[in-house]
Design a protein around this nucleic acid. Structure first.
Lengths: 146, 146
DNA sequence: TTTTGTGCAAATTCTTTGCAGACAC
DNA sequence: GTGTCTGCAAAGAATTTGCACAAAA
């Protein structure tokens, strides 16, 4: 687990190098993305920031996310007609999505990645650069009927 | 590999049982989905059918796909703002997408599925019902510079 | 003061929906 | 005949874009 403050600094530095400027809205969004353990979509980020920044717009959220994606500092998770973002762990990793409560969990402790890439290389002679794995099912809490 | 004609019959039967009716447009779409080795999206299906059925509409394509999804006879692949469909192998299976030529290939001969589900069960106590795995990279043909 | 970021609204893209007429059965 | 399917056009939802103004450096 990355230290959130450290992660925030990284995001700031990446944009600094790029020559980007820092508005209060943008800094707040960076912090939110750096800290967030969840996997918000653009609307959720927008709604999270709105109480503190009532004039912020959804377009600004998209535009800043777009910068961070270019820098490889935000991972986009393509779900059905809905993109979610992970600014905390920007490298591809599996996600577990509960059909009952909708939670999106990280499955980054799963260690089959090398094996799979190897198998794909051998069977299909296909060179994997990145992957997106989403597992749908029922999370522990929902199984226990909470 | 399923026999395309057999697969077509299965799709027809599924809709028959359901009490659906068969227009020429719908039958042609079923055949296209059953036969297709590729992974077309709605627009591509629409364009494939249009030469033979100039009056067909995109809405009809979506509506019939929707029926087949309900019957579990079409697999939807959620890509970035773009859904592709597999009516040939409707069960979840990995896909390999070439960043160069854009081809979507089946990776259904990859045998790590049981292992992964087991690992997810053990590590997260998460019960997997279905999954979507997409691997992006460079296909054999494009590696060879064709 | 120059360049980039912002909010707004309009435009895009993909998909769904409502409806009157067409067609399957 | 009657109930479903169709094409069309409009509506929705997520995302992008153009632009004049605001703010950063």
């Amino acid at each position: 687990m990355t230290d959130p403050e450290l992660r925030y600094q990284t995001l700031v530095e990446k944009l600094q190098i790029r020559g980007s400027r820092f508005t209060s809205h943008r800094l707040a969004l960076l912090r939110l993305l750096a800290v967030s353990e969840g996997h918000p979509n653009a609307m959720q980020l927008f709604e999270s920031l709105r109480p503190q920044f009532p004039t912020i717009s959804l377009a600004t959220v998209y535009k800043t996310i777009s910068l961070l994606k270019e820098e490889g500092e935000v991972l986009e998770i393509d779900l059905h007609n809905d993109s979610h973002y992970d600014g905390n762990k920007p490298y591809p990793h599996p996600h577990l999505i509960c059909d009952v409560c909708g939670i999106i969990m990280d499955g980054d402790e799963i260690h089959f990645k090398q094996i799979i890439h190897q198998e794909i290389k051998e069977k299909f002679n296909f060179q994997v650069h990145r992957e997106q794995m989403v597992f749908y099912g029922v999370c522990e809490a929902c199984q226990k009927g909470k």
